[in-house]
Nucleic acid binder design. Sequence first.
DNA 1: CCATTAATTTAGT
DNA 2: ACTAAATTAATGG
Length: 233
Amino acid sequence: MPNPSASPTLRCRDCPVKSCAAAILNAEELDGLSENSREAEFSKGEILVHEGSFNSSIIYLKSGLVKEFTKGSNSKEQIIQIIKKHSYLGLPSLFGDRINRYSYAALTDCNVCYIDIAKFNGLVKQNGEFAYEILVSVSKDNLHNFQRFVNQSQKKNYGRVADAILYFSRNIFESSVFDLPFTRREFADFVGVSRESVTRVLTGFRQEGILGIAGRKIFIQKEEVLERISRNG
DNA sequence: CCATTAATTTAGT
DNA sequence: ACTAAATTAATGG
């Protein structure tokens, strides 16, 4: 028996990792979805979508971590957000635009489903509950992101880095020990601080005994202090 | 396939 | 900007 990846594609109705929205769909709708989606794998570092490209499908992230980013006018990269598994990529530029406004790159190996955009739009138009779930996720992202950006813009380097560490710990990994999915460069692009400052702040935190750091491995030793730094900027 | 080495990327100052 | 370390790609067996 050759290769298992040649096995028949998993039908959407059998998918064990359906999104909240897809969980709403009935059997026929799911079968319709199956006919309009393709699975694909990406390995760490690969680009899933390039900013500026046509928007021909929506991507559902079955597993892995993805960064959503864009280039500012100074052509510096800005990471908008980290996207966890079981959510869609490309929703911000789905409605009312044919162009992807952001790029997406795999931070870890990923499994995704490409969903034809016409099919996806069709479901949104036909099924109010499906559309509602999509709206919920778009709105939540919006709130979270704006809150992060507002906080960020009001803080200095130490506060921004502390914020990001807490963000990873609480929102992404739900643990006080984790592997940063970022290079220092990416970390800098995420928090809007220079690469040098990121390492300065991190070694500062380590020297104060707030964090343990070994390469990309982080463990939080004094969460209260991090919170205080985050609050006071 | 594995082991070396060369090249590129990353981290820290 | 520069150096050292680490990661990745290329080469040869």
